[in-house]
């Protein structure tokens, strides 16, 4: 039990359960099938985006271009199908390839020049977004194959949409990567301490490029899922991803300096943010409050993490005195 209490996701899980019960007591509409459906859709889209940022946070960097990659892939994916009447599978593959290449560019330049990933991804953010606007001239693509539309709209049973399948698979894969594979452990080691990870023989080139490539792939998947959801490919897909992409991992206890991320807690962070946004809508609170709230949530999460670290430090100090 005490082991459970120490997990990052445990406290979040309790907050989620009690919060949902409280909201549904006040507003039974909260657990109506339609509301659950909307909730699951928003959770599944943000889940992929949050994971895309989380893996970069794990190595102690940040990726500002997540949204720009998502947007570029989204319009390429729809553009290939509409303008070049390509079938779905090759369009998806090319979309993934673009995400991979974008991620590779980020990782390669960052690790080879040693310039902070913040500046590199700020530059590539503008490059990818500029390509997106240059190609589309800010016009959306409307012609989407029926199968894609179906995938974005249909429900498996009850309120559960098809769209949740891919994010759930990704979350499971990410958990395995971070907790059960040497690559994931190496990433955390690298994020924790670059020098000592290099001293024990971890190739920083490999780790940074892998992390950015995975981030690019996830951003690409996120972009294509949004296309399925919206039923069209607009150039502004991804514009609003930056804040939530950091919010969920940070609420989930990730340390921005790197070396500590928790996949389950990040997923719970996504759900928490979605539930709160949804609740604010149900209670008919001004949508701009959602934004303020998200800001305060990040600050609160940061305070809580700091406090826990502080307590842990004190505890270890007591032990060392004995």
């Amino acid at each position: 039990m005490s082991a459970l209490l120490k997990k990052d996701w445990f406290g979040l899980g309790l907050v989620l359960i009690f919060g949902s019960i409280l909201i549904s007591l006040f507003k039974p509409a909260f657990i109506s099938p339609f509301n659950l459906y909307v909730l699951m859709l928003s959770v599944s889209l943000m889940l992929v985006v949050a994971m895309s940022q989380m893996i970069i946070i794990a190595i102690g960097q940040m990726n500002l271009s997540v949204g720009a990659i998502g947007g570029l892939v989204a319009i390429s994916f729809t553009g290939l199908m509409e303008v070049y009447s390509m079938s779905i599978l090759p369009a998806v593959l090319i979309g993934l390839l673009i995400g991979l290449v974008c991620g590779f560019i980020n990782g390669y330049i960052t690790v080879k020049t040693g310039i902070s990933a913040f500046i590199i991804t700020l530059a590539t953010l503008y490059i990818f977004k500029g390509m997106n606007l240059g190609i589309t001239e800010a016009q959306p693509f409307y012609e989407i194959p029926e199968a894609v539309k179906f995938f974005g709209n249909a429900k498996i049973f009850g309120p559960i949409p098809y769209l949740v399948i891919i994010p759930i698979i990704i979350t499971v894969l990410m958990w395995i990567l971070m907790n059960r594979t040497s690559l994931g452990r190496y990433m955390l080691a690298y994020g924790n301490n670059v020098q000592s990870s290099e001293l024990i023989g971890i190739s920083s080139t490999k780790i940074v490029i892998y992390a950015h490539v995975i981030s690019g792939l996830l951003a690409a998947i996120g972009g294509m899922l949004v296309v399925c959801r919206l039923q069209l490919g607009t150039p502004n897909i991804g514009d609003s991803w930056l804040l939530p992409s950091f919010a969920a991992p940070v609420i989930g206890g990730a340390i921005l300096a790197g070396g500590k991320v928790d996949v389950i807690a990040t997923a719970f962070g996504v759900i928490l943010v979605s539930i709160i946004s949804q609740a604010l809508v149900i209670f008919k609170i001004d949508p701009f409050f959602v934004q303020i709230f998200l800001g305060f949530m990040i600050l609160l999460a940061v305070f809580i993490n700091r406090y826990r670290e502080y307590r842990e430090e004190r505890r270890t100090k007591v032990f060392s005195d004995e």
């Binding site: 940040m62 913040f118 930056l242 804040l243 950091f246 940070v250 921005l256 001004d286 701009f288 409050f289 934004q291 303020i292 998200l294 800001g295 305060f296 990040i298 600050l299 940061v302």
Partner: peptide, 17 residues
């Protein structure tokens, strides 16, 4: 970075409200 990411959203939100 994380502090001003949060305050960015808070300031802009309050201003719009």
């Amino acid at each position: 970075f994380i502090v001003t990411l949060a305050t960015m959203s808070i300031y802009f939100g309050f201003m719009t409200l």
